[in-house]
Simulated assay, not measured.
Amino acid sequence: MDLNVLSTPGHLISLAARGFARLSEARLKPLGFGVGHLPVLVALQDGRASTQRDLARFARIEQPPMAQMLARMERDGLIRRAPDPADGRSSRITLTKAAEARLPDAIAVLLRGNHEVLRDFTDEEAGLLVAMLMRLIANLDRVASAEASPGTPIAGKGTDRRQAD
């Protein structure tokens, strides 16, 4: 099958992601949030994470960008840090009352945006899209993890990726 590169799933998903990000940023800004804050806000609200390391893992980003985002969120009054009683080198991160108060509105804004852009989809199609995207993300994680592992075969090469020609 000969696909135009602009019609590939990767490119189309990238366009959709940028479109969602623009829409979400515009709608979240009046609430004092950015789209990048959402994984952190949700993780802290649900109690799934409370340290920088846990938040980075949950949000699937590296530690340095997470540290920068947390510093901005603290500056903007969205989170607060307290020493971790179990580990003096670490801090426990919690939402401020202001962030907790605005978070339900932010979630409602995002859900409304998703509903608007999926208006022409049946419930079955929307569910299938979500399921397929979750499978795609799992596959991307698997491939990236395999490529990051030493000894992973490279197409056309031996089994040891450190092998030189």
Rank of each mutant, 00 (worst) to 15 (best):
P85H: 13
A98C: 06
L23F: 05
L31D: 07
G156H: 01
D105P: 12
S50V: 03
R92N: 13
D123S: 09
L41H: 10
M69Q: 14
P39D: 11
E62D: 15
A99H: 11
A101R: 10
G127W: 00
R53S: 14
Q68D: 13
Q63D: 13
G88N: 15
I61Y: 11
R60D: 14
P9C: 10
G19H: 01
L129M: 06
A43S: 03
L110I: 04
R72W: 05
T96L: 06
R162Q: 05
A82V: 15
N114C: 11
D165N: 09
L55M: 07
G156A: 02
P83M: 03
T94S: 11
L3H: 05
A86I: 07
V5Q: 01
A126S: 05
D2T: 10
D165Q: 04
G32R: 01
P65E: 01
D76K: 10
R135S: 00
A155F: 12
Q45I: 01
S149I: 00
R89D: 13
G10Q: 11
H115C: 02
L12M: 07
D76P: 12
E100T: 13
R72S: 04
R75N: 13
L28R: 01
A82P: 15
D160W: 00
E124P: 06
A71P: 04
L133T: 07
V130K: 08
M132D: 12
K157L: 07
M132T: 13
A86Q: 15
L12P: 10
R75Y: 09
P64F: 12
G127P: 10
R18H: 07
A67F: 05
N4W: 04
G10W: 07
T159M: 05
E62I: 14
A43F: 04
H11M: 14
K157D: 12
L38H: 01
L38T: 09
P104M: 02
R81G: 15
A108N: 08
D160R: 05
L95H: 06
A21M: 00
R119Y: 10
A155H: 13
A106N: 07
S149L: 00
L3K: 06
R72M: 01
F58M: 08
M132N: 13
S149D: 12
T159R: 06
T51E: 09
R135C: 02
L12Q: 01
L41N: 06
L38A: 04
R89G: 04
R80L: 15
N4Y: 06
R57C: 07
V5I: 01
E100Y: 14
Q68R: 09
P153D: 04
D2P: 05
P65A: 08
S14H: 13
D105F: 00
L78M: 15
V143N: 09
P150H: 07
R135K: 12
H115D: 15
E147R: 05
A82Q: 15
E62W: 11
E74R: 02
Q45S: 05
P39H: 09
F58S: 09
R161L: 03
V130H: 12
L70N: 03
G10C: 07
N114M: 14
M134T: 15
A101Y: 13
A99L: 12
S7K: 08
A21W: 06
G36R: 01
L95C: 08
R72K: 03
L95P: 01
G34K: 02
R72F: 11
L6Q: 00
I79K: 15
A164V: 10
G127Q: 03
L44D: 10
L136H: 03
T51F: 05
G158Y: 14
M132L: 05
L6K: 00
